[in-house]
Design a protein around this nucleic acid. Structure first.
Length: 425
RNA sequence: GGAGAGGUGGCUGAGUGGUCGAAAGCGAACGACUCGAAAUCGUUUAAUAGGUAACUAUUCGUGGGUUCGAAUCCCACCCUCUCCGCCA
């Protein structure tokens, strides 16, 4: 959420800085609302002050005179009643204004960073670097072919259980998934992250806090009987973990790593990535999350990205780092670096991690602050996948495929998986 | 799911309509005593929002209501605890 004060005092700045997202954001309406609200706040506060003084006076008079029904007292009470009516009128106006502002402001995305490349869509994203050598074999198999050959998962039976875009991992496939989760959690824990295992169901307030609601209600699964949703990413519960808190600055940065299943409706992606592990309604992910001092988030963003990269390096998977352009930036993010892993069968890089600096956007929505120089200020939040497990498995299968149909397991994973090769039994 | 109890400052806990943002204790900070410490004594000590500040407002689980005035009365909801039932 953007700062109301900023909108009130500098609407053109906000408008100008939202525009690189590629859409026109008219904020004159909300600007007017914030001005009106400020006036009403002042009015209410002064009326309350008067009314409070009067009530005290009445109390004093009563204890002095013992006569509760004197004419004088009744006049004072009458005056008090007038205050009450006036105040409640203003409060009603304020309630409506608050609601209107709420409706507007929660739909505004974060301001893109000045450092983010300007662009209109993903074709304008900027490749920053590549790492590793993309596998160049002739006719590489896709990971779903490999998976089928080695009997690692079953899509057909999964539609029987749920529907399309769900998967059941089988045997070594399930074991590999589990190995990857443990491997990543261990790596990040050793690297100073505290491991959390949060609930998979989250309430509306949590989703609003991290930016998925109200605008993107279509993208998450909702439980019809409760105010609960299946969490689309651990970013949601991790943000909510500290909602309405003021965190002692000496505890910053707070760094969490969390494994969680993630659930996404993938509305509007019909026909895309219908095969394999790339785009599922349910997938596993290990997520990195930072709460940090606002002055240090740029540095933290580099760090969280390199922490995610370290997993790809350990697994020896070729990847590239992409600087996401303003038009392709996520709703809550001011700047995002994507890590894209090489998938030989598609002959391209595919997103496997997205590392975002949300600045104070989520912190303001969730009211998470820190005290610096005796002032409470919103801290900065950062998140990054470290990594998406299913896509990592796809990358391992495709990049590790051997001519004999087996798959080489990356050395770093062998202790977790218990074998250095995947082959038919 | 049923029955009961309860939610007050950093913590414990008093407070059933008036000067209560709230007693007392603990804790914490500072000072005195001490070579130093402990103990003791004294002083201070809730938070949030707005404002350069003076100051103003809000806050006793949350949201409404009654009243000139609510921690206190009324309504709804949330949460916690105990017992019973069910359950991994």
């Amino acid at each position: 959420m953007l700062d109301q004060k900023l909108i009130r005092e500098n609407p053109t700045y906000v408008e100008d800085n939202l525009s690189p997202r590629g859409k026109v954001y008219k904020i004159s309406f909300i600007h007017q609302l914030t001005l009106q609200k400020k006036e009403i706040d002042i009015e209410i506060s002064s009326l309350q002050s008067e009314s409070k003084k009067l009530s005290k006076l009445i109390g004093q008079e009563i204890s002095k005179s013992q006569n509760k029904d004197s004419l004088e007292l009744n006049n004072l009470k009458k005056k008090g009643n007038e205050y009450r009516i006036k105040i409640s009128e203003f409060e009603e106006k304020k309630r409506i204004l608050d609601q209107q502002i709420h409706n507007e402001i929660y739909d505004l995305p974060n301001l893109p960073s000045k450092d983010a490349p300007i662009g209109k869509d993903e074709s304008d994203n900027v490749q920053v670097k590549t790492w590793g050598d993309p596998l160049k074999t002739k006719n590489p198999k896709s990971h779903w072919e490999i998976g089928e050959n080695l009997n690692l998962f079953d899509t057909i039976k999964s539609t029987k259980i749920s529907k399309s875009r769900f998967i059941t991992l089988v045997g070594d496939g399930a074991r590999l998934e589990r190995a990857l989760i443990n491997f990543m959690l261990d790596m990040h824990s050793k690297n100073g992250y505290l491991e959390l295992m949060p609930p998979a169901l989250v309430n509306s307030e949590s989703l609003t806090g991290s930016g998925q609601l109200p605008k993107f209600s279509n993208e998450s699964f909702k439980c019809s009987n409760d105010d609960l949703w299946l969490s689309p990413t651990a970013e949601v519960p991790l943000t909510a973990f500290h909602r309405n808190e003021i965190i002692d600055s000496k505890n910053l940065p707070i760094k969490y790593v969390a494994y969680s299943p993630c659930f996404r409706r993938e509305a509007g992606s019909y026909g895309r990535d219908t095969k394999g592990l790339i785009r599922l309604h349910q997938f596993n992910k290990v997520e990195l999350y930072w709460f940090c001092d606002p002055s240090k988030s740029i540095e933290a963003h580099k760090q969280i990205t390199s922490d995610a990269e370290s997993i790809l390096k350990k697994l020896n998977l070729p990847y590239r780092l992409v600087d996401i352009c303003t038009g392709d930036l996520g709703f809550s993010s001011s700047r995002t670096f994507d890590l894209e892993v090489w998938l030989p069968s598609s002959n391209c890089y595919r997103e496997i991690s997205s590392c975002s600096n949300c600045l104070d956007f989520q912190a303001r929505r969730s009211s998470i602050r820190t005290k610096i120089d005796k002032k409470n200020i919103y801290l900065h939040t950062l998140n990054g996948s470290g990594l998406a497990i299913g896509r990592t498995m796809a990358a391992i299968l495709e990049n590790g495929q051997q001519t004999d149909g087996s798959v080489k397991i990356p050395d770093a994973l062998v202790p977790y998986f218990g074998s250095n090769v995947l082959k038919t039994a």
